[in-house]
Design a protein around this nucleic acid. Structure first.
Lengths: 341, 341
DNA sequence: CTGAAAGCGCTTACAG
DNA sequence: CTGAAAGCGCTTACAG
């Protein structure tokens, strides 16, 4: 089927001997046409290779048919984590069904991100947005509320104002992780965290502190920018201290791998002298030596839930906060009872 | 500046005491209004927080203001390589200046990708597209030509029909890499390649074969799906052969890291018994032990060039194939003269 | 240099 | 159940 000229409803109307209005009703499942007419119109549309002109559709009051996602990250740290690609691919799975496109913008900071939201709103570019990398007292939330731009926040629980959030229980699995390490007789546990100020970083730290205190562990948290470089440097410092930890929990896989490298470099045996754990399991965790014990989150499902909730929101449904599937602990060779606790 | 109602050119026209047409001319830098009027209109538009309604603009014949990018990859392999995130962030740098958005779609295969192009074309969703993961005799090229959808191909040189390509000279740097390894006295070199059928994989393999033949080396290439899992398996097989290679060149960083792990696991010293090289340098290459010698490509610049060329194409300029900056070899601790060549 | 008007391709009240 | 018409917010010939 060679299509070289765009087909409009006028073409269909002419061919069907109907008015454009009738064709529109038929195509959109609106009342106003008989079932037989509707079927005839739908068949013709398919034959002619008709697709609605998205601009015309959007201009006449319907949706733009697009969601927006702004990533305020530096190009350096963007590629590091597979998280976003998985999230996006999960979202698209849900969006494909409703013919919704994803508009992606990479910016440097929150100011530009907010300017993007204002522009998208004024341009009527998107029907809704996905907010990621939530912080405490996040300015972006108020802007989206002010614009009444439908939005779903990836993260929480809490700190996203009146916007519905879809979240994963990181705090809960942190308790599981630390209790497991404590059961292995670890008494000094360090946490190499992600970016300070991000809500998910803080929620994990808080849970880490609480469970450590409850179990009477010596615990310390260091924040980083997620790069393996900082992961390596922090690990070197931790292992050089007078009383080095016997277990380190990293906030992503590449830092954990960096940690393993530093242990090798310093002659520290993993897991004999040092247990290592990574957040967000990945193929990388499976192939390093030893393979890493990790927290596994179903990020594709997470993305799917996010998109589904935004679609429901646009559908006028009542949307409340939603907890995506809880993470699980995958135990591999990088964690063990310490030789010298 | 609280903006809660969208401003249109009618608002500006009324406030300025002009017709909508005059306002449009003023805003778009068209002749037909005096310079002083233009300035006044521009000032008002800024004050009122006006942005053109993208649907109206697109519908009245102008551009949609969006580029499309389809990624036909499985969710599993999507997150593995930082390549695409870097490419996208480079593209956006160039697109931001011209207020162009990026439409991203993740699909399973070329059929769905082609259907997406046809739909985008019919919907007038995008002004042009970026074609990635080029193959020999790529069906997608003919479809884009048929639709006359402006497109830039990421890859080549060659095999992209009449569409302009932006490429990086992988073959050239492959020669540099192998000559370097040969100069170190390596005689048996293996290559763990990416997906068979991708043009860049084949061009690298071809260059690898040619230079190996010229230098009289024993060379072998194995293709993979880019996952560290396959990287590890292939490495295990190579190192188990009767005459194992003394150097292995990997097509991405995660497979190279997997290779290092397998070497450790099998007690093979890197770089004493085995030299390891990765394509596409990354933070990961820097932090493993030993740090990896790697081919470094400026992917952000690559993305910027791609977007610039698509913008030029839409601008009606004559656009020809373009070679982005050549890669360079970054030598680190994973390559050395072999102990037993 | 400026204004009035048609048109892009849809949707949606409003009559019949 | 169907048709004629207005309108979404722009752009762009066409008169003046």
């Amino acid at each position: 089927m060679r299509v070289t000229k765009r087909v409009t409803i006028a073409d269909i109307a002419e061919k069907a001997g109907l008015s454009k209005g009738a064709v529109s009703y038929a195509l959109n499942g609106q009342p106003g046409v008989s079932e037989s007419t509707r079927q005839r119109v739908l068949r013709m549309a398919l034959e002619l290779g008709w697709h609605p002109n998205s601009a015309a559709k959007a201009l006449s009051g319907a949706r733009s048919g697009a969601f927006g996602l702004v990533m305020a990250r530096s190009p350096e740290t963007l590629g590091i984590e597979p998280f976003f690609m998985k999230l996006i691919s999960g979202m698209e799975a849900a969006m494909a069904a409703s013919q919704t496109a994803l508009l992606l913008q990479v910016v440097a900071d929150h100011d530009t991100e907010i300017a993007t939201y204002r522009r998208w709103w004024a341009e009527r570019r998107v029907d809704g947005v996905i907010l990621i990398d939530l912080r405490r007292d996040d300015r972006r939330v108020a802007v989206l509320e002010e614009l009444r731009l439908p939005a779903i926040v990836v993260g929480g629980p809490g700190h996203h104002g009146g916007l519905p959030g879809v979240w994963i229980d990181d705090a809960g699995v942190m308790v599981v992780v630390i209790e497991y390490l404590a059961a292995l007789r670890h008494r000094r546990i360090a946490r190499v965290a992600g970016v300070a100020g991000m809500l998910h970083t803080e929620l994990r730290t808080q849970a880490f502190d609480e469970v450590s205190a409850r179990l009477g562990l010596e615990s310390t948290t260091v924040t980083t920018d997620y790069t393996p470089d900082q992961g390596a440097q922090v690990t070197r410092r931790l292992l050089s201290s007078a009383n080095p930890p016997t277990a380190i929990v990293y906030d992503n896989d590449v830092m954990a791998v960096a940690g393993v490298s530093v242990a090798h470099e310093m002659g520290v045996d993993v897991p004999g002298e040092l247990s290592i754990m990574a957040w967000d399991d990945s193929v990388l965790c499976e192939i390093v030596h030893p393979p890493l014990t990790a927290v596994d989150r179903d990020i594709t499902a997470y993305g799917r839930h996010v998109a589904e909730h935004l679609l429901a929101l646009l559908d006028g449904q009542q949307v409340t906060d939603f907890e995506s599937q809880p993470p699980r602990l995958v135990v591999r060779g990088s964690t063990a009872r310490p030789v010298n606790p």
